[in-house]
Nucleic acid binder design. Structure first.
Length: 553
RNA sequence: GCCCCCGUAGCUCAGGGGAUAGAGCACUGCCCUCCGGAGGCAGGGGCGCAGGUUCGAAUCCUGCCGGGGGCACCA
């Protein structure tokens, strides 16, 4: 019996008590099942009696006693105790608990998927680095976290489109083009221009692609360097992200908003809503009406539209594509955008609390030899996605970035994460998977297949450590669901570390394969299922994080 | 000045109101005739401070004190 099934059982018990007139409450939609920390508190606990006590008008312990009476005798439940202020502690029958292993193996890759977010159409935008340079460490964090979040949301039943918005218009791109042009002519980097080896490389590629380009007029040259340079840079960004295991459904060009008239349409739409005014020769959106700390310019006095105006058009475009909710992941240096973004959503007539979600992630510092690597564009110490992967490998990089809460600034220790020892969390988890794989290979060599689910004596899993492992496996779907709802992929990583530890403890006290000339027993088979189930969950969990689950290390 | 994030064990961090606050590392002492010791067991140690809400607060609210980051007719 899984926690989800137990939740239904308890809910039914409440309904039954109400039906019989021994309890007078509204039956709750959801009954929370917890895994008690103290093993003396049974396999599972619920605070349902504490929650219902007030409406029932009776002491929590009395409500708990009523429900305990209903639960005793339910198949699969071996004991129910009322404890503390009114908790119900439930102990499952050994075979019912052991069935979790069978369910996991039977579900395979699907174990962990739920429908808690079914019906939601989400647009998940992340990375969105401008094609003026390679992806740096900040974008890399979002690549790891955003990709994991996308997988989590999908696993929880949401319809997710992963989107990358790239600015291929505006002043930054002009500076990029001018920097390429200067490099091609061997001139110094222009003021506010981009430096770095990649500028020279891309400039050379542009010339190689279009040999006559340097013969054109200065304006035409700049245009060609812009077009080809952006294409080359963006191709490079896509390639490094793909090597990192991150691929987007949509790569959205800001330029198209200008070219299709979407910008004018958005401004017109905002004007219709009555929130646009003109001052100092510029066109403004009165975002202060919706809680922003100052009004924002849409069209500058020189006639150029602002980045903010493009944001409006882009948001509108997403909504017109049918997304219920626009989720945007930004770095902490962009937190000031939240106010104006919410205001623009409200100004367009949507509800910012429903249709928009902005996730802010704190910054990443790299540490090597105990010393922080301060990033500085001027000092040339910008750390790139590729640098990180080169230093620790893609698996460790993704895991390290995804295992921390996004609210936490992280100091990523390159020494630690490149180490092949158990103080490196990703190796600890991967090692557990490799160890199980090795054991299952050993079982196969001994001619011990898992066999049919119906032939497993799950009651044979009676050891304390087996119970611990089964309960841990039973948590996985809830971990995935809550990580998706809370937009917190790091919870999956932490869970996997805990699961790996629980497995090692089981392994240490429970011999799986027969030794020497011993015969296999029902316990052998049941434990093999338990091992296979653990491997499945480790694999599924690592897959969510985009990290490999090696069978050998 | 205003805004955002953080403050939990010696260190790096988990803990979406619930029972005795956890993990890894580090430290001390242990455990292989045996499936991967890249493992396990035991021990010491902690919620920045002060109020509030609640039957119950590390968790929610307010203030203060520390640390990090951000304020543009830039993108």
């Amino acid at each position: 019996m899984t926690p989800e099934q137990l939740s239904d059982v308890v809910r039914s018990a409440v309904a039954a008590a109400v039906e019989r007139g021994v309890l007078s409450v509204a039956v709750p939609d959801e009954v929370v099942i917890e895994r008690p920390k103290n093993p003396e508190h049974g396999d599972y606990a619920t605070n349902v009696a504490l929650r219902l006590a007030k409406t029932a008008g009776r002491p929590p312990r009395e409500v708990a006693e009523v429900l305990a009476g209903e639960l005793r005798g339910v198949e699969g439940v071996s004991a129910v105790d009322v404890a503390g202020p009114g908790f119900l502690n439930v102990t499952l029958a050994k075979d019912a608990l052991g069935q979790i292993a069978v369910r996991v193996v039977a579900a395979g890759e699907a174990y962990g998927r739920t429908e808690v977010l079914a019906g939601q159409r989400l647009n998940l935008e992340f990375v969105s680095a401008n094609p003026t340079g390679p992806v740096h460490i900040g974008g890399t964090r979002w690549a790891a976290v955003g990709d994991a979040l996308g997988r989590l949301l999908t696993a929880s039943g949401a319809h997710v489109t992963r989107e990358y918005y790239f600015n291929d218009a505006g002043a930054q791109i002009d500076r990029f083009a001018l920097s390429l042009l200067a490099a091609a002519h061997g001139r110094p980097v222009p003021e506010d221009g981009y430096a770095g080896d990649y500028i020279g490389e891309i400039a050379a590629q542009v010339v190689a692609t279009e040999p006559g380009v340097l013969e054109l007029s200065e304006a035409d040259q700049q245009e060609r360097f812009r077009v080809l340079g952006v294409d080359l840079m963006f191709a490079e960004i896509k390639r490094t992200l793909a090597d990192f295991g991150v691929v987007f459904d949509v790569y959205f060009s800001e330029r198209t908003l200008h070219e299709t008239g979407a910008l004018e349409k958005a401004v017109a739409r905002l004007r219709e809503q009555g929130h646009v005014f003109e001052a100092d020769g510029a066109v403004w959106l009165r975002t202060t009406t919706f809680g922003d700390d100052k009004d924002r310019v849409l069209v500058k006095s020189d006639g150029e539209t602002t980045y903010f105006a493009a944001d409006c058009a882009y948001y509108l475009d997403k909504r017109e594509r049918g997304f219920d909710k626009v989720v945007i992941m930004l770095g902490a240096d962009h937190h000031g955008y939240i106010g104006r973004y919410k205001a623009l959503v409200a100004a367009l007539g949507d509800d910012p609390d429903v249709n928009l979600e902005i996730l802010i992630g704190q910054l990443v510092n790299l540490v090597r030899d105990g010393e922080p690597l301060r990033m500085s564009k001027r000092a040339g110490t910008v750390v790139l996605l590729e640098d990180l992967v080169a230093a620790v490998g893609a698996d460790a990089a993704r895991y390290a970035l995804a295992r921390a809460s996004v609210d936490q600034q992280i100091d990523l220790d390159l020494d630690l994460w490149s180490r092949q020892t158990n103080d490196n969390p990703v190796f600890y988890v991967q090692y557990a998977h490799a160890r199980i794989s090795s054991l299952l290979r050993g079982a196969a060599d001994l001619g011990l297949p898992l066999g049919e689910a119906g032939d497993v004596d799950t009651a044979a899993l009676a050891h304390q450590r087996e119970g611990d492992l089964l309960r841990a496996l039973g948590e996985f779907p809830r971990v995935i669901a809550s990580a998706a709802e809370l937009r917190a992929p790091h919870r999956v990583a932490r869970y996997l570390e805990e699961l790996a530890g629980t497995y090692h403890r089981f392994y240490d006290s429970c011999r799986v394969l027969p030794r020497g000339d011993e015969e296999a027993t029902p316990v052998t088979t049941a434990r093999l299922w338990l091992c296979a189930a653990t491997a499945t969950v480790l694999r599924n969990g690592l897959a969510v994080l985009g990290v490999s689950a090696p069978e050998r290390m």
